[in-house]
């Protein structure tokens, strides 16, 4: 897997979509990431990442319902495609393999 294919932020966003599916859209993702990381995450950044992921074919989207706090505007709901799911699990297995090869003492030293 080429590095350029999935940036770190993109990976997190993709994971968040998987977590929040089927009600994943930029606002809830941004809120979720803020909660998880403790850093401010703007919807613009999330939205931009979502668009890139959709272009790459890892996500697909459709327009959802409107709510009053949105001023009657519809939201764009995202779901992970099969390709996106495969990419996610591949990234995860690379990580897992590497994690598994770390000698337990090393991990102990860190903590």
């Amino acid at each position: 897997m080429r590095r350029s294919d999935l940036g770190e932020f993109e990976e997190v966003v993709l994971l968040a979509v998987a977590v929040l599916s089927p009600r994943a859209y930029s606002v809830v993702i941004a809120e979720e990431l803020e909660r998880e990381t403790g850093q401010t995450v703007s919807t613009g950044a999330v939205h931009a990442a979502l668009q890139r992921l959709e272009q790459k074919g890892y996500l697909r989207s459709e327009l959802g319902e409107a709510t009053p706090e949105r001023g009657g505007r519809r939201k764009r709901l995202f779901t992970v495609t099969a390709l996106g799911g495969r990419v996610l699990s591949e990234v995860r297995s690379v990580r897992n393999r590497l994690w598994d090869r770390i000698i337990p003492q090393t991990i102990l030293k860190w903590s």
Binding site: S26, A30, H47, L63, A66, R73, R74, K75
Partner: peptide, 13 residues
């Protein structure tokens, strides 16, 4: 539509 909707909802939150 989606962009304005998003920031308004975020603001409300």
């Amino acid at each position: 539509e989606e962009v304005l909707g998003d920031i308004h909802e975020r603001y409300a939150l």
